[in-house]
């Protein structure tokens, strides 16, 4: 083990960590919103849109993320009309291609998770809300959505971890995030273990923090399910 190489790789890999975190947060944030929208469409009566979302989820979950990234980054450039369109300044940048691919990917998985959450909301709760005159958006915002999210949160936590790992594929389209930097160090030094240990630990650290955030959110959302706290010390 070459400890000097290990210490020397910390800074470059830490520089890559910035990009990794940026990729994760941006695509997760957009993916979450889109997942809710597509899950709601799946449960609506808009027959054609429902079919479209089903095909989309099927196609994304059935193919590797790498294919999706390459289709967007390399594939779209094949068409002249894409290269002449106003979207080209975005689509020619590897960073935005990675963001688009990751968002499209996590939306499909997230959509199924949120749909499961929405389906777990019991009729009784919706009827109770209706009986006191709630309807439409108010019913969704106050009753359906919070219950669904609480139910979906553990599964969504797994998706967050998978997304952190998925950002490593951005290195295949020249983005120098953590895996990209580690790959360069491995190839140049012919000592793969050192860079692997550093990059691997950073990934584990990010994943650890992510699971803690999810756990904390879960804890915040389930206050009514916890037994009341007993104060052991008499206050008076």
């Amino acid at each position: 083990m070459d400890f000097r190489l290990m210490i020397e790789s910390i800074l470059p890999i830490l520089g890559g960590a910035r990009l990794t975190i940026l990729l994760v947060t941006l695509s997760l944030a957009m993916g979450f919103v889109l997942a809710i929208i597509t899950a709601l469409i799946r449960r609506s009566r808009l027959t054609w849109l429902v079919r479209l979302v089903r095909v989309y989820v099927f196609a994304i979950r059935g193919t590797p993320l790498l294919v999706q990234i390459f289709l967007i980054y390399y594939g779209l450039g094949q068409f002249l009309w894409v290269r002449e369109s106003f979207l080209w300044p975005v689509l020619e940048k590897p960073f935005w291609c990675a963001i688009i691919a990751l968002t499209i990917n996590t939306t499909a998985y997230g959509s199924e998770i949120i749909r499961g959450g929405l389906e777990s909301v019991s009729w009784g709760e919706i009827e109770a809300a209706k009986s006191i005159g709630m309807s439409g958006f108010l019913l969704f915002r106050r009753i359906v959505f919070p219950i669904a999210i609480r139910q979906a949160l553990p599964a969504y936590g797994n998706e967050v971890i998978l997304m952190v790992k998925a950002t490593s594929l951005a290195s295949t389209i020249t983005i120098m995030e953590m895996t990209g930097v580690a790959n360069v160090i491995m190839a140049e030094s012919y000592r793969p273990l050192e860079a692997f240990i550093i990059a691997g630990s950073f990934y584990l650290l990010i994943n650890f923090i992510m699971t803690r955030i999810i756990q904390f959110t879960e804890w915040r959302l389930s206050g009514h399910l916890r037994p009341p706290e007993l104060s052991l010390v008499a206050t008076h």
Partner: peptide, 22 residues
């Protein structure tokens, strides 16, 4: 199981590709 599920697949593939022979 923590390492196998928490570290990106691509990074593990690179490790074995560059370091497998060694």
């Amino acid at each position: 199981t923590t390492l196998g599920r928490g570290i990106p697949e691509l990074l593990i593939i690179y490790l074995l590709f560059f370091g497998g022979s060694g």
